[in-house]
Design a protein around this nucleic acid. Structure first.
Lengths: 210, 210
DNA sequence: AATGAAGTCAAACGGCTGCTTGAGTTCACG
DNA sequence: CGTGAACTCAAGCAGCCGTTTGACTTCATT
C-alpha cells in the first residue's frame, strides 16, 4: 500500500483544480459572472480549456463552486466576528465587529479581497442555487439583529432589520465600487476609524427632530 | 417649404431610435453592460439588428448613449434636489433631499427606476468616457458637502466627503440589490420614513465613545 | 515490462456574437 | 410621375463562445 506516499498524478490534478478556482475567483471579483470567458480563466490559470469540463463539468459549475467557496468563507468570518459580542455591547463595538471582515479583507488584499468583492457582486445578481447557504445568511443576520435590539430597544425591530441591510449594503458598495481601491491603500486602523462612526450612526439613526 | 408639416419617415426613425434607447436602458438596469446582446435589444424594441448600426454606429455606442442619458437625468435630479437647500438646514432635511431622487424613482418605477439602477451599475463598473459628466458629478458632490460642512462644523471635511460617498453608495446598493424590488412595492412616504434616519445618522456619525 | 487509471492537450464542433451588405419600402420633393 | 433621401430588413460574414473528442503523457500497481 501507499497511503503515506504521494500520488503525483492526483496532486497535479488538485493543483489544476485549485488554480482554476483561484483564477475564477479573481475574475469574478473584477468583472462578475457575465462576460466571464472560459479561455480567459484557463489562460490566467495556465491550464487547458478541457480541464474545466474535466474537473468541474462546465464553466457554470466552476463559477458556482468558486462563488460558494467565497460565500462560505465570508459568512464564517462574519458569524465569527459577531459571535464574540455579548448583549451589552456599545453600538460602536457592534459596528466595528460588523465591519471587521471587510476591513480585514481590504487591508489584506489578495484572495481575501477577491472573496469580498465576489460576495458583494453576488449580493446584486444572486445565483439561483444559494439555498444551501441561506441558513448561514440567516444566522449572520440574526446575530447582528440580536445585539442591535438590545442596544436600541426603543427602535422598531422591522426598522432595525432595514438598518442592518443598509449597513451591509453600504459595506458591499464600498468594497465593490472604485472607492474600494482607494480604501485598500489605507491601513486597517484608518479604514475602521472612518467607517465605524458612519455604521454606528446608521444603526442608531437620527434623533427624531431632536 | 414644409417646416410645419411632419416628415413621416424621419418621425419613424426617431421612434426607432427612442425605442432602442428605452429597451437598452431597461436591459442595462436589469443585467448591466456585460452579457447585453444586440439581438436581445432589437427584439425587445421591435427593431431590426441593422437599425443599431444605422442609428448609433455600434452596440457600444448605443449603450454609451443610453448610459449618458441616464446619468444626465440622474445628476439633474440630484442637483435640483440639493439646490433647494439653504445652509441652515437640518441633517434630516439634507438626508431627505439626498434621497429624494431615489425615493421618487422607486415609487414611480418604469423608466425612472431603470435610470436609477443603470446609474448605480455604472457606479460599480464605470465606462471610460464619462469625463464629459465629471463636472456635473463634482457639482452634485459639492452641493451636498457645502450643506454638510455647515451642519457638522466639528467634523473633519475629509470625513464628511467619505460619509457622503457612503450615503450615496448605500442608496445605490438599495436600488440595485434585490431589496430594491421590495422597496419598490412600498409608498414613497414609507421609504422616506425608513431611509432618512439611517442617512442622517450616517452623516452625523456616532458620538465618539460618549 | 504490462496494465490501467488520472490527467493533459491540440483540434475541432455547432452556436451565438456584433456587424455589414444590398435590395426593398416609404415618402417629400421637383 | 420621377427622383433621391431616409429608413427597414433578411441574409450573410468572420470571430469568439462553451464543450467534446481522441490521442497522448505520467505514474502507481501488478
Amino acid at each position: 500500500m501507499a497511503t503515506g506516499k504521494a500520488d503525483l498524478r492526483r496532486e497535479a490534478g488538485q493543483r489544476t483544480r485549485d488554480g482554476l478556482l483561484a483564477a475564477t475567483l479573481e475574475l469574478l471579483a473584477q468583472r462578475g459572472q457575465e462576460g466571464l470567458t472560459l479561455r480567459e480563466i484557463t489562460e490566467s490559470a495556465g491550464a487547458n480549456v478541457a480541464a474545466v469540463s474535466y474537473h468541474f463539468g462546465s464553466l457554470k459549475a466552476l463559477c458556482d463552486t468558486a462563488i460558494e467557496h467565497a460565500l462560505e468563507r465570508y459568512l464564517d468570518a462574519q458569524i465569527e466576528a459577531l459571535g464574540f459580542l455579548s448583549s451589552g455591547v456599545t453600538l460602536e463595538e457592534l459596528a466595528a465587529a460588523f465591519a471587521r471582515p471587510m476591513v480585514g479583507a481590504l487591508a489584506a488584499g489578495g484572495q481575501d479581497l477577491a472573496v469580498m468583492r465576489t460576495v458583494a457582486r453576488v449580493g446584486i445578481d444572486p445565483p439561483q442555487g444559494w439555498d444551501r447557504l441561506a441558513g448561514k445568511f440567516e444566522r449572520a443576520r440574526q446575530d447582528a439583529l440580536r445585539v442591535l435590539t438590545v442596544a436600541l430597544p426603543e427602535v422598531d425591530e422591522q426598522e432595525l432589520v432595514f438598518r442592518t441591510r443598509c449597513a451591509a449594503g453600504m459595506l458591499n458598495w464600498l468594497v465593490l465600487a472604485p472607492i474600494g481601491v482607494e480604501l485598500a491603500a489605507e491601513s486597517a486602523e484608518r479604514i475602521e476609524r472612518l467607517l465605524v462612526p458612519v455604521l454606528a450612526g446608521a444603526f442608531r439613526g437620527a434623533p427624531s427632530r431632536g
